[in-house]
Design a protein around this nucleic acid. Structure first.
Lengths: 199, 199
DNA sequence: ACTATAACAAACCAACTGGTCGGTCTTCAA
DNA sequence: TTGAAGACCGACCAGTTGGTTTGTTATAGT
């Protein structure tokens, strides 16, 4: 019993330390040695739970990054007035963005930019997450159209895709600017676009 | 004389091979050994022209990536109807985007995401380029307002920032999707947003 | 002709990379 | 009591990393 707890403990600790390490340095530059140092575990422990570094990377994506993002988003969408709720989501994001978030951006987007071209496993996982994000946004727009809060003249597919792209782009832009003001400006431009989707 | 030519030759070759290597793998994962192999030059040659890998990286950014991007953009902007010219730019981008572009995205954005958090030299260079891009877009919007082709009710700063963000985001999104159709959808959503900025 | 210097070449280096392997300790079922 | 398996340790490995050093060749200025 205790052994099982300890196992789950070690696996979890490995996963979380690896997540922050990958978030800070990217997957390729994330060093197994430093992950082990920060967990206090040994190489044997890591390679007992994960056969390769790649598998550890996939696990971080599947079990930490993607669930985290999805939770926050789906929670913000169940509404018949998506434009308002998304705007609120943006404003809330503006408020609760930490300095670390500004510096490091979105973990999924980071991995996407780094790994998509060179590893299919990463790419497919990230693409699935982004596709889900696009689809759920698209459905939110459709619900808005039915409820009369979104213009019937807009194409929900196009705008959902553009929305997700802009979202990732905004976070990325802030990363190189490292400037909160710019995040504010961009958010206002973003909200302006969203308001333009009303009937 | 011949020596000078040869020097410029070697430096240039180094720079260009390094550029494609960095474009493919990112800066950190770009291997000096493979760059040398592809140029046919020796380590002595490289470290004669560039004292460190970092300096080579900066040079690639300063002398290849940034000029390339700037040229294409400023060329697209000198117009009193920026919305039309930007839309045309997007449509042209849609048409002339190679498979490699789809797979690898925008070199500057790649470096931005990878290096901004961990190296100030990269960050400042990229930020300067993006700032220039934002400012020139903002001025294009202003010119449009004076010419009556852009609504006076929009905030040019906010929308210029949002535009640049969306641009980078779109390229990034396509990278993980690796899907031309999605680029088309996103472009249409993008153009829809731009059209909404008219009076 | 002489010399200084630019332009390379290539052997060499310490540090680090992800990954392996033999062994140890604990837990638990038979 | 015994045996098997899970959990973990840490020495070890081959290969790679960016970077240095020593040496050679070619060219330009004097």
């Amino acid at each position: 019993m205790n052994a099982v707890v300890k196992q789950e403990d070690s696996r979890h600790r490995l996963l979380e330390v690896a997540a922050t390490e990958i978030y800070e340095n990217g997957y390729q530059a994330a060093s197994i040695a430093t992950i082990l140092a920060k967990t206090g575990l040994s190489k044997g422990a890591l390679y007992h739970h994960f056969p390769k570094k790649l598998v550890l990377g996939y696990a971080v994506l599947d079990e930490i990054f993607i669930p985290n993002c999805m939770a926050r988003w789906t929670q913000a969408l169940n509404d018949s007035d998506p434009i308002s709720s998304i705007s609120a989501f943006l404003r809330e994001g503006l408020a609760c963005t930490t300095d670390e978030n500004i510096r490091l951006g979105c973990p999924i987007n980071n991995l996407s930019q780094e790994m998509s071209p060179i590893d299919e496993g990463f790419r497919q996982r990230i693409n699935a997450a982004l596709t889900y994000w696009r689809k759920s946004t698209e459905e939110a727009f459709k619900r808005g159209q039915q409820a009369g809060t979104v213009s019937l003249r807009i194409n929900t597919v196009h705008n959902a895709t553009f929305f997700v792209a802009s979202m990732e782009g905004m976070i990325g832009l802030i990363k190189s600017a490292q400037n909160r003001e710019l995040l504010d400006e961009c958010t206002q431009g973003f909200i302006g676009y969203l308001e333009g989707l009303r009937p």
